[in-house]
């Protein structure tokens, strides 16, 4: 076997091991497969999102994206509290915070998810997810603190990278954008590293 074949073999083995998930897993309460699965097939949902992206490109000249919503909200708050300072910031000069397509898109997504959950009878209504409390207990403060800190890092990273799991992970990758493929691979490397530290160590 030459070096190239060896690399390919190693990569293929790693993929199969990773995907098939043998017994190196753990406490059943920390295994996502022991909790309820999704309502619809991932292929149906994925195809739906793919078709939706045709429509947003065609009718709105917009790729699907979520993260800029949060930047707009932060800019709106900033404008209310310190208008001159907010307008002096580089990011808001190129992307002025106003009620736009991206803004209503995410708000409407909350409503869409609510209707989906109601129609399927799976309204969750909880402050701490079960798999989290199985590992870290049911303190809302601990959960909230982690979620807030994670949210901050995630938004900072999304703005640096130029998009999130929607803007890069779906809209960018489907246009075969090099930046998006790099970013989405880094999302999963960073995410898998920390998630495994949290749940497996």
């Amino acid at each position: 076997m030459n070096r190239r074949q060896a690399w390919l073999f190693a990569a293929a083995t790693a993929l199969v091991v990773m995907v098939s998930q043998p017994a190196w897993a753990i406490d059943p309460a920390l295994d996502a497969r022991n909790y309820a699965g999704p309502a619809w097939s991932p292929y149906l949902v994925g195809a739906g999102i793919g078709v939706l992206s045709w429509l947003t490109f065609y009718f709105s000249d917009k790729p699907i994206g979520a993260s800029s919503f949060y930047a707009t909200v932060s800019g709106m708050i900033g404008k209310a509290l310190a208008p001159r300072h907010t307008e002096s910031l580089d990011y808001f000069k190129t992307k002025p915070p106003k009620l736009n397509w991206d803004f209503v898109f995410v708000l409407a997504a909350i409503a869409g998810a609510a209707v989906a959950a109601l129609s399927g009878g799976n309204i969750v209504n909880e402050w701490v997810p079960d798999m989290w409390s199985a590992r870290f207990g049911d303190s809302v403060f601990l959960r909230g603190g982690f979620a807030f800190a994670g949210g901050m890092l995630m938004a900072f990273g999304a703005r640096m990278a130029g998009g999130c799991t929607s803007g890069h992970g779906i809209s960018g990758t489907l246009q075969l954008n090099v930046a998006s493929w790099i970013a989405v691979i880094c999302f999963f490397i960073g995410g898998a590293a920390v998630a495994n530290l949290m749940f497996r160590v």
């Binding site: 979520a66 900072f156 999304a158 640096m160 990278a161 130029g162 929607s166 490397i189 995410g191 590293a193």
Partner: peptide
Amino acid sequence: NIAGGLLFGVGFALVGYCPGTAAA
């Protein structure tokens, strides 16, 4: 892209939701 992507991933694991799925 790389630094931001890795930071995003770290945050993603801490929250458990990404910006779009948080809305859902």
